[in-house]
């Protein structure tokens, strides 16, 4: 099981005022807030913590088939390449990268799975599925009736977990064929 989240920093910084009264309180624990405010780039830290929570939410959402909005139930205890986030007693492992004004986080239920996750960055357009598939030799990216994405092997028809996220200019498809 895997999840991912992408943040277009330009879009996030224009559309959300994280300094607004009450904003951080709704999303982050006091410990998370302290870490954000003490960092040299608080703005970037807001979106890093946020992307970790969102990537883990994608896994929970897929497992439970339930949609909900509880950012504070996800507790980020470690960030960066060895990120850890917990939710109702479950632990998820994450890895985040920051580049070209974007933050991207992948999440998995097992730490070793992170090494097997592949990421494709695409431009966020409405026809990204056909765009991805025209470039992919071995796999077809498909969405089932519930909008859940899967990567299907063109030869043996085997289906693999995939996760899609998009924001602003960016779109990321992550998949793990050996998971």
């Amino acid at each position: 099981m895997l999840g991912n989240d992408i943040v277009d920093l330009d879009k996030a910084n224009t559309e959300s005022d994280w300094k607004r009264k009450g904003y951080l309180d709704k999303l982050f624990s006091s410990q998370e807030q302290q870490e954000i405010l003490n960092s040299s780039n608080p703005e970037r830290m807001v979106w890093l913590f946020w992307s970790i929570k969102e990537a883990a939410y994608k896994i929970v959402n897929r497992e439970t088939q339930e949609r909900f909005y509880s950012p504070r139930k996800f507790n980020v205890t470690s960030i960066g390449n060895n990120g850890i986030v917990t939710f109702e007693g479950k632990t998820f492992y994450t890895k985040s990268e920051i580049k070209d004004n974007l933050i991207h986080t992948i999440a998995a239920a097992k730490a070793e799975s992170l090494n097997h996750i592949q990421t494709s960055f695409l431009t966020n357009t409405s026809d990204y599925l056909s765009h991805f598939n025209s470039k992919s030799e071995h796999y077809t990216l498909e969405k089932d009736a519930n909008g859940i994405p899967n990567l299907v092997d063109k030869i043996n028809g085997e289906s693999h977990f995939a996760s899609i996220s998009h924001h602003g200019r960016y779109l990321a498809v992550v998949y793990g064929v050996s998971l």
Binding site: V7, A12, E15, S16, D17, R20, K21, G22, Y23, K26, L27, W50, E54, Y69, P71, H167
Partner: peptide
């Protein structure tokens, strides 16, 4: 609506 903007909406509602 972007999930990060849901907070803004909730604060506006408050």
């Amino acid at each position: 609506i972007n999930s990060a903007n849901l907070v803004d909406i909730i604060l506006d509602i408050e």
